[in-house]
Structures are given as C-alpha cells and as structure tokens.
C-alpha cells in the first residue's frame, strides 16, 4: 500500500534535487539518492515504489532541471498531487511519465504517513472508506499519454498531438 509523503507549499526543484547532486556532478547511478536531501534526508532511503508525493501550491518552482523528477522516477514514485504546479516542472513530470494531478482539496485531506490505495486509471485515492477523486489531465496530454509520452507520440506519428491533419507549416522568420 502506498504511503503519503506530505511536503506542503512551494517545494522548489532545489528541494527535490539540490544542484550540487546533479547527475553530472555525482554520477547517473547515484543522483536519485539525494532526492530531498536537505528537506527530508530520510526520503530517498525510505520511499517505496508507488508512494504518493503530496504538495500544496506551486510544486516544482525554480530550475528547469529534469533530473529532479528523474530522481523521483528512479525511486518509482507513484504520482505527485499538488494544489498547483510550476509550469516547467509540470511538463517534466509528464514527459517522464510520472502521473501529476492538480487538486484543490486532496492535498489538504491527505496527511504525512497515511497509507492509501491509488488507482491511476480511475484517478482515485482511497484511505480506508474515504475515496478522493482526481481530475484527468487535459485532452492534449491524454492523447500523448495514450502512446506513453509525448516523445513516443512524436516518434510514432511524426507530429505533435493536436497538430492533426492540418499541421502548421514549419514557418521560419525570413
């Protein structure tokens, strides 16, 4: 059963993975061990595959470093649920195939250390008899995620989701 890790508001990407522990500083096989090294030093050792990370407002602000969510992916985090996300980090989560949900109410209802069950396909979290629903991602992203990721989508179709048949010409400034 997944455990809830509650982090609160304004978690920045230096919190998620400090810059000095970037993969090209400490090695591709090591960097995930430093996830939340300053904020919750026990996290990387104790997190279990499928655990849920819960944040408040503006989760993932700051640096564009994709290796921050990559560390979470390596640790097999099940999903990130927050009241709101910073935009670059939100794209990074989805690009890496880490489910990310925005919810005004669920982050507040979940407590650190809660044991829950999580149904990704249904978009629900259950704690005992309580069931919390999550909003599905926008249609554009669902179309990409059907192929696994936007990269996989592009590789398969040679275009972006939503470009459709009337793909915009590759305009260049003259």
């Amino acid at each position: 059963m997944p455990r809830v890790w509650q982090f609160g508001d304004s978690i920045n990407t230096d919190d998620i993975l400090p810059g000095k522990y970037a993969p090209f500083m400490v090695g591709e096989d090591e960097f995930h061990r430093y996830a939340f090294a300053h904020l919750r030093p026990e996290f990387a050792a104790e997190v279990r595959p499928g655990d849920l990370l819960v944040g408040g407002r503006n989760w993932g602000l700051g640096s564009s470093r994709e290796y921050a969510p990559q560390a979470l992916k390596t640790l097999q985090v099940g999903a990130v649920i927050a009241e709101s996300f910073a935009r670059i980090h939100f794209r990074n989560l989805l690009n890496l195939g880490i489910p990310a949900f925005t919810s005004e109410t669920v982050p507040d209802a979940l407590r650190d250390g809660d044991t829950v069950s999580f149904d990704l396909a249904a978009g629900t979290i259950a704690r005992g008899d309580e069931v919390f629903g999550l909003e599905p991602p926008p249609a554009f992203l669902q179309e990409a995620l059907k192929e696994g990721s936007i990269l996989a989508f592009y590789q398969k179709y040679g275009r972006f989701p939503g470009e459709g048949a009337k793909r915009a010409p590759n305009r260049q400034p003259s």
């Binding site: 564009s64 470093r65 994709e66 290796y67 969510p69 670059i88 980090h89 794209r91 990074n92 690009n95 890496l96 554009f140 990721s149 936007i150 990269l151 592009y154 972006f160 989701p161 939503g162 590759n170």
Partner: peptide, 18 residues
C-alpha cells in the same frame, strides 16, 4: 522560455515545440 531536457530534445529533433 525554459523547458526540461525532454522538451528541449524534442524541439531539437523536430524544430518545433508545443
């Protein structure tokens, strides 16, 4: 605008971004 490695790689490969 800034983006992460995957978006940037896709843009280098495709010449475009969403």
């Amino acid at each position: 605008t800034g983006m992460g490695a995957t978006d940037v790689a896709l843009s280098a490969a495709s010449g475009r971004t969403w």
